[in-house]
Design a binder for these strands. Structure first.
Lengths: 200, 200
DNA sequence: CGATTCTTTGAAAACAGTCAATCTGTGTGG
DNA sequence: CCACACAGATTGACTGTTTTCAAAGAATCG
């Protein structure tokens, strides 16, 4: 088994509570997709019919508003499931774009096959369920951050929660993710640097 | 069957795709809880171990930050499932408060019983799954609104999406939900009134 | 009624955004 | 290997939306 698939297998065993055999069965239905930096996994207007697991790399999901401005909805690194669950449920064209920020290895499966597996492998439903619960809980936490934090507090919270992201992702995308401008984020970084230097 | 339970039965048939008989079986495990205005369904620090269906009334879920300020996370009206899914999964004390804004009728079930029903009634897993998917999609949409809208745009979007809420809920709670101050929202309302008067 | 709670209004202050210029680093092609 | 282009990051001055603070006017409830 190639390394990309092994990552998913490990994920299924550790996070989904599967036996190695069950995990094999699930993994066998996935195909590997290599994405080079700047390539897309999903483009606005297309329908999302898959489940995708990030085995290696980093992607961003973003929207484009009426003024043509991009807004980063989320980052997806190893062991995440990027996609558009709205489009998946409804079959409607997606409003989201998903783009590789680095060279990526993605494991893909069509939704129909995925549903088959859910029927065949007991425990699959539970894992999917838990996945969505976690996603929802995380989204609520983020909403909470929008409600109570200033720009600086949002950034502090972000680097505490995702310490690896700032090193992998350009600043202006993080600013977009936080709902602030790149200039503001640059100034915030500056004050944080000064704090570090002062030994706070 | 009392009227409160009938609402849930109807929900299960229409939204969950159950037969009336299956729906009966599910409904039978729920108990009715009456909440008077200002009473709580969940208080910060308690563990949430239930699933709750709003048969009648309106509630708010909110957090209290370090400064003692309240932030409205969500409103729940008829046919919604308020609760703290984070606390439910992890078993950790909740950070949320859920309070009745009107006299309410809530249908409650313990999570353990709920899991039993999921095992017994086929299709239950799918419904729960779809519920969380919808919740997650809605949360993402809200995050998107935070990213691209001004205060006024957020309010316009809100009344368009939830036209019934403004009539049932005090202004300052809507302001909190939108992440703006009550004074700002009051001023926005003022300009909207003027627009209406001018016939825009 | 009196007492909350909710809403509105005004003026001043603060935070973040905009615009514009410059600086940095990286990679590509001559 | 250098020069150039380009994307990303920083800085400054200015603008503007939203917040804050304070006060007073509705509305609701016991």
């Amino acid at each position: 088994m190639c390394k990309a698939l092994e990552n998913l297998q490990r994920y299924l065993i550790n996070r989904g509570g599967f036996t190695p055999l069950e995990a094999d069965q699930v993994v066998a239905s996935f195909t590997t997709k290599v994405l080079r930096k700047h390539q897309s996994l999903l483009q606005q207007g297309d329908v999302w019919r898959y489940h995708a697991f990030v085995s290696k790399g980093c992607l961003r999901t973003y929207t484009v508003d009426e003024k043509g401005l991009e807004h980063v909805i989320s980052f997806s690194t190893e062991n995440w499931w990027p996609g558009d669950c709205e489009s998946l449920i409804s079959g409607a064209p997606s409003n989201y774009n998903i783009e590789a920020l680095e060279d990526c290895k993605i494991l893909l499966i069509h939704n129909e096959q995925f549903i088959d597996i859910c029927r065949q492998v007991p425990g699959m439903n539970n894992m999917v369920n838990a996945m969505y619960q976690r996603s929802f809980a995380a989204a609520q936490e983020r909403i909470n951050a929008f409600l109570q934090y200033t720009a600086e507090e949002k950034y502090r919270y972000f680097i505490k929660k995702y310490p690896a992201i700032p090193n992998r992702v350009p600043l202006h995308m993080i600013a977009s993710y936080l709902g602030i401008t790149k200039e503001t984020l640059s100034r915030i970084r500056n004050t944080l640097r000064k704090e570090m230097a002062a030994g706070v």
